[in-house]
């Protein structure tokens, strides 16, 4: 490779050194192939599926469209950071119990997108949920059980028995 990059990234609060990288590497590639964090998935390489959703400085973005070397001095959060205490989040639990997981390839990205939505909006309407998740393609479920999972989390967080 013509250029070799050395930089550090802060992922889930931990600083990681990246050495000998190619400048064109996406954050998705670096997370998966260099930092051993394969939770974000690659399925389209162009921001059209949401499987690679991570947070950069609190914004939910497609890591395939972030040039990794440009993300220094940013707080990066991935699905692996959700379970630092070893327990599943309420969103993750609901995905399992409501049947929102089939092949599971879209799941980490969707889990991140749902967390992001519910962090910003505690009681989203049905349409707000759909619009917020419209960047995350799921090919297996037809979304019905995913909506059910989101509804379950909203109900539970708002103290309603589902």
């Amino acid at each position: 490779m013509s250029s070799a990059e050395f930089y550090s990234l802060t992922v889930n609060g931990v600083e990681h050194q990246v050495a000998d990288a190619w400048i064109g590497e996406s954050l998705l590639y670096v997370l998966r192939e260099r930092l051993g964090l394969p939770g974000a998935k690659g399925a389209c390489e162009q921001g059209e599926c949401g499987s690679c959703t991570v947070f950069v400085n609190g914004e939910s973005v497609c890591s395939c469209l972030v040039m990794a070397a440009s993300a220094v001095n940013c707080e990066i959060a991935t699905v692996e950071g959700l379970n630092s205490d070893g327990t599943l989040t309420d969103v993750q639990e609901a995905f399992i119990t409501e049947g929102a997981v089939q092949c599971g390839f879209c799941t980490p990205g969707l889990v991140m997108a749902v967390h992001h939505l519910l962090d910003q909006n505690h009681s989203p309407s049905e349409l707000e949920v759909k619009e917020a998740l419209s960047g995350n393609i799921c090919r297996c479920t037809g979304y019905g059980r995913i909506f059910a999972a989101v509804d379950a989390v909203i109900a539970s967080r708002n103290g309603v028995e589902s």
Partner: peptide, 21 residues
Amino acid sequence: GGTDLMVEVNFNHRKPNDVIA
């Protein structure tokens, strides 16, 4: 934002050398 450029890089249509972010 990278949403155009990185698509080109990922699809092998562009090989950036010097990048100003």
